[in-house]
Design a protein around this nucleic acid. Structure first.
Lengths: 237, 237
DNA sequence: TGTATTTTACTTGTCGACAAAATTTCCGCG
DNA sequence: CGCGGAAATTTTGTCGACAAGTAAAATACA
C-alpha cells in the first residue's frame, strides 16, 4: 500500500501446536516496534492470516494481548490499528521513564546476585559493539536489553513490566528519528553504563539512583532535541 | 467442587454484538478479585461457555487479556488457572504500591482540574458511607476507586495503569483476610483521605508526597499485621 | 453536477467442529 | 496389592463458516 512493504512474506510451516498465538504476537510486536507497521496503520486480520499461514483465531488472540498492552487500539466492529504515539503527552512518558530508570537501578544494587551481573555485562558488551559498529538500530535494541536486565536484577516484577513497556515505547520513538536523520547515540552512553554497572556491583544505592537519573536525563534530552529539530508540527494523530 | 459455588448462574441474553469479550472479561475479573474464583482454581472454558451462554472464542480472548494482566496463568495445553498470590514476594508489591501512592498523589496536586476534585470528593463520600456502615467489602471497593480517581487526576496513564493493577491485587489480598476475620478498616483512613484531598486542592506537592507515603505505610502495616496474625504458613502455591 | 439513498462488498464477532495433548481410567503383570 | 503401560476421556488449540455491522460503490434524485 504505502510503499513500505518490504519483508512481509514471513512464512513458517509446521509450527508446534500451542505456539501459534505467541508466534503471531512476537511477529506483530516486532513489526510495530520497528515501525515496519507504522502508527495508525490498520491491521487486517485476513491479510495477516494469509501472510502467517494461520487461522484468524490465534491472530485475534494475539491482537487482544497487544491491545491490552497498548500497542494496538481496537475500534469496535472496525479495524484495529497500530497505536499512535501521543506527542502531546510525551512528558508523562519521560516522567515515568526517569522514575523507572532510578528505581530499577537502585533495586539492582540492592538485590542483584552474581548471575545477574554476568548477564548485564554481556548486554553491555553487545551495546559497546553496536556503538563501535555505529549501528544505531542495534544500539537501541541492546540498550533496551541492558536496562531490562538491570531491572530483572532488581527483582520487582511490577517495576520490570512497566519499565519494559516504557523501553519499548521508547524504541518506537527513537526509530522515528533514526529513520529521518541518521544520528548517532552519544558515545558517552557506554561510559555511563559502565559507571552504573560498577555502582550496582558495589551495591551503592544512592550512586545508582543518581546515575539512573542522570542517564534518564541524557536520553530524554536527546529525544527532545530530536523532536525540536523536527520541523513537523507534533500532533497526536 | 470446593463448596464456594454460590451465585455462578450469571446469565445474559440478547447481548449486543461486540460486547461479548468485554462482558466475559468483566465477569471473570470481578469473580477473581472477589475471590469467588479463588487463587489456583482452574478455569474451564467449556463450563464457562455454558454458564455465560457463549461460544468458547470470546471466552478465550477474555482469558488472553486476563493473562496479560497477570490475573490468570495459562499453562500450555493445560487448564488456565487463577493466579496465585505470591506471599513470599509481597515486599515487592508493598514497595511498588508505596511508590505509586506517593507519585500519583503528588501528580494529582500538580495536574488536577476542578472536575477531578468533584469526582474525588464523591468517591471519598462513598468511602465515608462504607465506613459508617461498617461494610468492609464496600470500604475496599470505594477506597480503590478513590485512589484510582486521584491517580487519574495526576494525568499519567503509565502510573495510573500500574497503580490500578496494584490496587486490584490489594483488593484480592484484603479479601482473604476480611473473609477469615471480620476486621474493620481503621477509622483514621477517612481523616487521612480528607487530608490528602485538602493537600491536593492546595497543590501542596510535598505534603501530598508525605501523606501518600504515610497512607501507604498504614495500609502495608495493616496487611502485614493480618498476615502475621494468620497462623497458616504463607507459601507461594 | 452535487447530494441523498440504496446496494454491494468487505471486515469483524461469534459459532460449532475437528485434531493434538494431556490427564485419567482401566487393564495386565509382577 | 502395587506398579507400569495402554486405551479412553477430557480439554485445549486451531480451523472454516456464517451472521452482524460498517465502509464503499452505485444509483436515484434534485
Amino acid at each position: 500500500m504505502t510503499g513500505n512493504a518490504k519483508k512481509l512474506e514471513t512464512v513458517a510451516v509446521e509450527r508446534k501446536r500451542g505456539s501459534g498465538v505467541k508466534y503471531v504476537y512476537d511477529v506483530l510486536r516486532d513489526e510495530i516496534l520497528d515501525l515496519t507497521l507504522p502508527p495508525g496503520s490498520p491491521i487486517d486480520e485476513i491479510q495477516l492470516s494469509e501472510r502467517l499461514k494461520m487461522s484468524r483465531t490465534p491472530i485475534r488472540e494475539a491482537l487482544v494481548r497487544l491491545a491490552s498492552e497498548g500497542l494496538v487500539s481496537t475500534l469496535p466492529n472496525r479495524s484495529t490499528i497500530v497505536s499512535n504515539i501521543d506527542f502531546l503527552n510525551l512528558h508523562t512518558f519521560f516522567d515515568a521513564l526517569t522514575l523507572m530508570y532510578r528505581v530499577t537501578t537502585r533495586l539492582a544494587a540492592e538485590n542483584h546476585v552474581a548471575a545477574d551481573l554476568i548477564a548485564i555485562k554481556a548486554h553491555q558488551a553487545a551495546f559497546s559493539k553496536a556503538v563501535a559498529a555505529q549501528d544505531a538500530l542495534a544500539m537501541i535494541a541492546t540498550n533496551r536489553d541492558l536496562h531490562a536486565a538491570i531491572a530483572e536484577a532488581g527483582r520487582n516484577p511490577y517495576y520490570t513490566s512497566l519499565f519494559c513497556r516504557l523501553l519499548d515505547e521508547g524504541r518506537r520513538l527513537l526509530r522515528i528519528y533514526y529513520q529521518s536523520y541518521d544520528d548517532r547515540l552519544p558515545h558517552e552512553y557506554v561510559e555511563e553504563h559502565n559507571q552504573m554497572i560498577a555502582a550496582i556491583e558495589a551495591r551503592d544505592i544512592d550512586l545508582c539512583d543518581r546515575l539512573g537519573q542522570q542517564h534518564a536525563d541524557q536520553i530524554v534530552a536527546q529525544i527532545q532535541k530530536m523532536i525540536s529539530r523536527d520541523r513537523r508540527h507534533p500532533i497526536a494523530l
